[in-house]
């Protein structure tokens, strides 16, 4: 995590590299120079440069798990808010069980206000986003608690090889689903859910610090002992 600390904060327009390098996201080329296009932390390797966003909306990627809110239904599909620039579309054939759209009203299956855990299936060149619930783990969320954090901080909540999130799940004995779009769903004993929420909010706040997994773990244990 040491390299994390050495990441420099950059501002749109700032020159971050010169010459022949490969560009990741958050940068653009202008003549011989490479500049940042967003507020973020600069990540620079030998021949590759990108800026990790510090703010901004979730940008969908195929394969991402997201937590969506159904906002509208029509005869053939659902509209789902995925906390992004685009509303996603869920077609009945991408629901996890067979639906005869001619026989059943979609409203009876998912209604506005329902929350779902789904996966981004396809993004068209005109940026239409299709999500699906046919993958393992996809489901309708019932009960529990919902939390929204900055999507840019999600990788830190999950941790390297899921180390952070597995630790939290184990320590608070809750089921936790993390959407890449910054929404997190937690279900378990209310007082333990409360601790999990505190822990996640602290990770969001202190994402730039190193040794976070250990300090979060001791915080959870401390809070648990207070119960």
């Amino acid at each position: 995590m040491k390299d994390n600390l050495s990441r420099r904060m950059v501002i749109p327009g700032e020159v971050v590299a010169e010459g022949d390098v490969n560009l990741g996201s958050g940068v653009y080329r202008e003549g011989d120079k490479v500049c940042a296009s967003i507020m973020g932390l600069l990540e620079k390797r030998k021949s590759f440069v990108k800026v990790i966003p510090l703010t901004g909306r979730y940008i969908p990627k195929v394969g991402d798990f997201v937590i969506g809110k159904v906002t509208d239904v029509n005869l053939t599909h659902w509209y789902v808010d995925i906390n992004s620039a685009y509303n996603a579309i869920l077609n009945p054939r991408d629901y996890f069980r067979d639906i005869d759209a001619f026989q059943t009203s979609l409203l009876k299956i998912l209604a506005p206000g329902d929350m779902i855990f789904a996966v981004v299936r396809e993004i068209t060149p005109t940026k239409k986003v299709y999500i699906a619930m046919t993958n393992r783990g996809a489901r309708l969320l019932r009960g529990g608690r919902l939390l929204t954090i900055n999507p840019a901080k999600v990788p830190r909540v999950i941790g390297r090889k899921s180390s952070m999130i597995s630790m939290i799940k184990k320590e608070v004995k809750c089921s936790i689903l993390v959407g890449q779009n910054g929404r997190i769903w937690i279900k378990g004993k209310p007082e333990l859910v409360e601790i999990a929420v505190k822990a996640i909010k602290r990770i969001e706040r202190e994402a730039h610090l190193s040794g976070l997994t250990d300090s979060i773990k001791s915080m959870i244990i401390e809070e648990r002992e207070k119960l």
């Binding site: 206000g113 919902l146 769903w185």
Partner: peptide
């Protein structure tokens, strides 16, 4: 604004 059922129940 459409409110999630989860939030309603929780509050």
């Amino acid at each position: 604004e459409i409110v999630s059922e989860i939030k309603k129940d929780y509050i």
